[in-house]
Design a protein around this nucleic acid. Sequence first.
DNA 1: CAGTGGTCTAGACCACGCG
DNA 2: GCGTGGTCTAGACCACTGA
Lengths: 240, 240
Amino acid sequence: MVNKSALVYDDLRQKIDRDVYQPGTYLPSENQLCQLYGISRETGRKALAELAEDGYIQKIRGKGSIVIEHRQYEFPVSGIVSYKELAEKMNVTTENVVYGFEEHVSLPVQMFTSLRVEMTAEPVTAVKRLRVIDGEPDIIDKDYILTAIVPKLPKAAAQDSLYAYFENDLGLEIAYATKEITMEPANDEDREQLHLDPGAYVAVVRSVTSLADATPFQFTESRHRADKFRFRDFARRTKK
Amino acid sequence: MVNKSALVYDDLRQKIDRDVYQPGTYLPSENQLCQLYGISRETGRKALAELAEDGYIQKIRGKGSIVIEHRQYEFPVSGIVSYKELAEKMNVTTENVVYGFEEHVSLPVQMFTSLRVEMTAEPVTAVKRLRVIDGEPDIIDKDYILTAIVPKLPKAAAQDSLYAYFENDLGLEIAYATKEITMEPANDEDREQLHLDPGAYVAVVRSVTSLADATPFQFTESRHRADKFRFRDFARRTKK
DNA sequence: CAGTGGTCTAGACCACGCG
DNA sequence: GCGTGGTCTAGACCACTGA
């Protein structure tokens, strides 16, 4: 058996999602969890801490862990989730058109200067994709993947899912990303691909994704139709 | 003495911010931290886990905790931070104009339906504020605060900082918030207050803020000039 | 192999909510 | 006063890294 606290987390989250534990009600107390799952208190607490972190519960001292309103199936959501993972969660027909694929080009560093200061123009594979949702082109994704980490990116991986390829086929461990959201006037490429009028705006999400060994390896510029863009975030207040 | 792990967290974070521990280098190992601070290993691990959560370090098994690139003084940042706290972090001259103040009105529920399903039109105090940064009006904040939680909101609190009033004067414990970012065409009020041209867009951040006992009590609509809006997020990849 | 982080345990003491 | 969660401890075993 592996990772008891993760098993407890999954079980509780599932029960919250299925309304076994409903919003406004309390989960079993920490001591009860010990007996229910045959674990020590700290192990149960770790599972509860993650549920709190992810916005499922609020812990209240002296009372217990209350289930809070939790909305699912939103697009896009906070966190690092691939486009394919998102599409699967919702019931939408999606299409993924690769309209650009270049190997051994230089990373356009000036695009990401606000996200990372030190950066050299290392060789990357550049992929341009158009995301078509319910028959409408909504998002342009421009990915730049370090050749040093992914020497030979198959075109099929771009057609399917880059994340699935990185994680399942290459065994890369994706750890974290820094993103930045801004609003910018649409450029010619935006207008053409997303069928926008002159003067239109797009929501731009630029991100740098790093591996578990802290190596940044993927740089993404995602350009969204303004009227379709939605970003959801759950945040806890930092004490002091 | 209170909260050893928080003390260790603060000390390490401060040293990272001051480049005592530089990006790319390793923090002392967990066993070394035990001796350095006179703590048990789990206590040190808790501090490290929070540094990782907040994007300061990346933990690598078998090697140690490496300091990762961390950009500070950005506006706005992820998390729940008040406008005043943000303004203090940056060296900008700011002004805060309260141009609307109404008590005992109904919460405009339709504005927040995408954030919370169940919601009644409870009585609130409505505050409208214009944020002027470096002499330019950049943000409109519309706050709706439940009368049941804050019966009598002093106008001075709106002039200064709502968060400071809630936390310091009322002793409320702000716990978490759900936010949603969208892009919308500017309305008449936006154009007037933010000096925008017809056809302009604004970035809209709607949020619901809740207390430590899981009570939602503050609803905010924040409307930003498109060209000044910037949202920064650090996210970790969820396993499986 | 020694050193690193990842997980889990059993127990202790404390602060808070509520009757 | 009892049950809740918050913090900390000392120790155990495991998995991974790198010399």
